[in-house]
Amino acid sequence: MKRILFIDRDGTIIKESPPTYQIDSLEKVNFYPRVIFFLTKIAYELNYDFVMVTNQDGLGTDKFPEKNFWPIHNHILKILKTEGIHFSSVHIDRTVPEENSPTRKPGIGMLTSYFHPGYNLEKSFVIGDRLTDVLLAKNLGCKSIWINPNFFVEEKNLSIEKKSLKKIIALETDSWERIYEYLKYSSSKRIFQHKRKTLETNVKITIQLYGEGKAKIQTGLGFLDHLLEQMAFHSLIDLNIHTIGDLEVDEHHTIEDTAITLGEIFHQSIDKRGIERYGFFSLPMDDSLATVALDLGGRSQLTWKTKFIREKIGEVPTEMFIHFFQSFSSSARCNLYVHAIGKNDHHKIESIFKAFAKALKMAIKKNITNQLPSSKGML
Score class of each variant (00 low, 15 high):
residue 271 D to P: 02
residue 260 I to R: 03
residue 288 S to R: 12
residue 287 D to I: 01
residue 292 V to E: 12
residue 284 P to F: 13
residue 264 E to Y: 00
residue 291 T to C: 05
residue 268 Q to K: 13
residue 291 T to K: 04
residue 269 S to V: 03
residue 275 I to Q: 09
residue 256 E to N: 05
residue 258 T to W: 08
residue 281 F to Y: 14
residue 278 Y to K: 05
residue 270 I to H: 06
residue 288 S to K: 03
residue 261 T to H: 02
residue 263 G to Q: 03
residue 258 T to P: 11
residue 290 A to F: 12
residue 286 D to P: 11
residue 262 L to Y: 13
residue 264 E to D: 13
residue 282 S to P: 15
residue 274 G to F: 05
residue 258 T to V: 13
residue 290 A to C: 06
residue 273 R to T: 14
residue 288 S to A: 15
residue 286 D to R: 11
residue 264 E to G: 07
residue 293 A to W: 00
residue 264 E to R: 09
residue 261 T to K: 05
residue 283 L to T: 09
residue 255 I to L: 15
residue 262 L to G: 08
residue 282 S to L: 10
residue 274 G to L: 14
residue 287 D to Y: 12
residue 265 I to H: 01
residue 258 T to A: 13
residue 269 S to A: 15
residue 269 S to L: 07
residue 285 M to G: 12
residue 276 E to I: 00
residue 278 Y to T: 07
residue 265 I to E: 07
residue 271 D to L: 05
residue 290 A to I: 02
residue 270 I to A: 11
residue 277 R to F: 07
residue 267 H to F: 10
residue 262 L to M: 09
residue 291 T to A: 06
residue 268 Q to F: 08
residue 290 A to T: 13
residue 277 R to S: 11
residue 266 F to W: 07
residue 263 G to L: 01
residue 262 L to D: 10
residue 293 A to K: 05
residue 282 S to G: 15
residue 276 E to Q: 04
residue 267 H to A: 11
residue 293 A to H: 03
residue 257 D to S: 02
residue 276 E to A: 08
residue 289 L to W: 05
residue 272 K to A: 14
residue 255 I to K: 10
residue 264 E to N: 09
residue 266 F to K: 08
residue 279 G to Y: 01
residue 268 Q to A: 14
residue 256 E to I: 06
residue 265 I to C: 12
residue 257 D to F: 01
residue 278 Y to V: 07
residue 265 I to Q: 10
residue 284 P to I: 10
residue 263 G to V: 03
residue 284 P to A: 14
residue 263 G to E: 10
residue 278 Y to M: 14
residue 283 L to K: 01
residue 283 L to A: 03
residue 259 A to Q: 12
residue 272 K to F: 09
residue 258 T to H: 12
residue 287 D to T: 01
residue 264 E to A: 06
residue 267 H to T: 00
residue 271 D to Q: 12
residue 262 L to V: 00
residue 273 R to W: 06
residue 292 V to N: 05
residue 260 I to M: 06
residue 279 G to N: 08
residue 266 F to E: 13
residue 288 S to D: 10
residue 257 D to N: 13
residue 283 L to Y: 15
residue 276 E to F: 01
residue 262 L to F: 15
residue 258 T to F: 04
residue 290 A to S: 14
residue 275 I to V: 07
residue 271 D to T: 00
residue 290 A to N: 12
residue 257 D to M: 03
residue 292 V to C: 07
residue 257 D to C: 01
residue 283 L to C: 13
residue 288 S to I: 04
residue 262 L to Q: 10
residue 259 A to C: 09
residue 269 S to I: 02
